[in-house]
Design a protein around this nucleic acid. Structure first.
Length: 274
DNA sequence: CTCCAGGCGGATC
DNA sequence: GATCCGCATGGA
């Protein structure tokens, strides 16, 4: 797999560890859609189109540097998969989800998206985020940009009713206000995982699981293993002892160490879709 | 009708 | 600390 970058596209030849569907459908990113023959992905108000050909993928965008990092193209996923296979025997999951990559997403968007995700399902999460952008965001071309913390903090309660986020609406408002008022979310890049988790959990609507998803999908902290209803099933399939999700997560991180986030993503995707 | 979805906050012990 | 419970919404 070799990658070339030009002013308006990224070309991936022989893309053996890049699969658009597996990346986008693995529950880490919610703002995309499939249009006839290609995916459209929106992040930070920037857009790219993913075209898959016989032995080549083209990412069409005016911001190739942004999306090069977004799709984590500097990381060698063959090496990760080989280790997960040879040391941990994850052949089935890594084969099924081959082409998954852990994205590097915007921290604020990821915080809001995963507050919405709690006790919710993916089609509905996508719908709420779509309405959030339409109601609060500003229009850029034919799309709506993801709203800023200020835009969300300065909106009335009846606008929050329109997005139909249920009881999560007040979490969104409280968190947007806190960040708009100076709560610095960029310093998490400088923190280790445990301190970053504690820091993020100061925000309303963020517990252990949501914090771990944000640490993984925005800050690329890979020593986390988020436990949701699906990865809980993975644990219970192997060990039929009913411990807390916190204990399950700690068990998996102790096992997979810095590959925990990757292992979790393959196992989640396999368990949920198989 | 009930059950479930990438769980969290609050009350209680 | 750990555990139990209520919770908006919409699809199965």
């Amino acid at each position: 797999m070799d990658i070339t970058k030009t002013l308006n596209k990224i070309i991936i030849n022989r893309p053996n560890t890049f699969n658009s569907k597996h990346i986008l459908d693995s529950g880490q990113m919610f703002r995309y859609n499939f249009d006839k023959d290609h995916y459209e992905v929106i992040s930070k108000g920037l857009i790219c189109e993913l075209y898959t050909y016989e032995d080549r993928i083209e990412i069409i965008t005016t911001e190739p540097n942004y999306f090069y990092n977004f799709f984590d193209l500097d990381t060698d996923y063959n090496e990760i998969i080989n280790t997960l296979n040879n040391e941990y025997g994850l052949f089935m999951a890594t084969d099924y989800g081959k082409g998954i990559r852990i994205l590097n997403q915007d921290p604020y968007e990821t915080i809001i998206n995963f507050i919405i995700s709690s006790n919710n399902n993916i089609p509905r999460i996508k719908g709420i985020i779509d309405r959030l952008c339409r109601v609060f965001g500003s229009k850029v071309n034919k799309y709506y940009a993801f709203p800023t913390p200020e835009e969300m903090a300065n909106s009335s309660e009846d606008k929050y009713d329109l997005i139909k986020a249920g009881y999560r609406a007040k979490y969104l408002y409280n968190t947007a206000c806190k960040i708009a008022n100076g709560f610095d979310i960029d310093i998490v890049y400088q923190m280790d995982t445990d301190n970053g988790r504690k820091y993020l959990m100061q925000l309303d609507g963020i517990g252990n699981k949501v914090a771990d998803c944000i640490l993984l999908f925005a800050y690329h902290k890979t020593d986390v293993f988020p436990i949701d209803t699906w990865t809980e099933k993975v644990y219970l399939d192997e060990y039929n002892n009913h411990v807390s999700r916190k204990i399950m997560s700690e068990y998996f991180v102790n096992k997979y160490k810095m590959l925990s986030g990757y292992a979790q993503q393959y196992l989640y995707y396999y368990k949920r879709n198989r």
